[in-house]
Amino acid sequence: MSLISVRDVHKGYGDVRVLERVNLDIDKGEFCAVVGASGCGKSTFLRMLLSQEFPDRGEIYLDGEPLAGEPGADRGVVFQRYSVFPHLTVAENLIAAFEFQSSQFFGRLFGAARKRAFERVEEMLSGVGLARARDLYPKSLSGGVQQRLAIAQALLAEPKVLLLDEPFGALDPGTRADMHEIMLNLWKSREMTIFMVTHDLNEGFRLGTRLLVFDKPRWDPQAPDAYGATITYDLPLEDAADIDLSHFQTKPTEETTHAEP
């Protein structure tokens, strides 16, 4: 049974049809890279996987169960920005994942649980190369380091699937290459399932085990919003090189044009 099943999902805003007839099965351990033209609904789809938005029609299942009606610890996420807590240091950001789940009221850890959590945090800090930044606040970290922290934080909550929406879109090319390395290592060592939206086709090729392309199969020049996008290509990455993807204008969404500060 697949980890995530999407059955005939439709989604629109008012008269704008964004997504139509989306069907998808993702197995445990897959690294799904999603590309598509800017504004075609990739983030909308990811928000539905998060339960931040809901399909107009169709169903989404996680582990055979319909998705919970709100975001939860079973699905981790890293956005392009604002994915870490600015008022917590690096180490505190990582501890937060344990604190939230351990004590619903106090949000604090005690005794042995606290010790175990700290050990896991230390392990993660060195695993993603954040040990020296442990007591810094996010404002003094570069964009790349912030995203590394965001990924580490999401992983510590041990989600069934990690959802990434253009996580490296705001980074400069050198930092992005480093992040790819880290991402691949984490994915391999932890046997995670990852669903990553990217505007960078090369990134998709480099990281994914499977490439999904969102596009509008039908197009009415008089009414560009009348039809929605769906998955037009779904391929294991060995074969992807044969496909001509040149007609996708895969531009970053607005924010991505800003270089790293």
Binding site: L50, A73, R75, G76, F79, S83, F85, F100, A150
Partner: peptide, 17 residues
């Protein structure tokens, strides 16, 4: 940012947290 609120929820935070 809605991102921050969503992130907290995906780490298991309750409304009170």
């Amino acid at each position: 940012p809605s991102e921050t609120l969503i992130k907290a929820q995906t780490l298991g935070a309750s409304t009170w947290q």
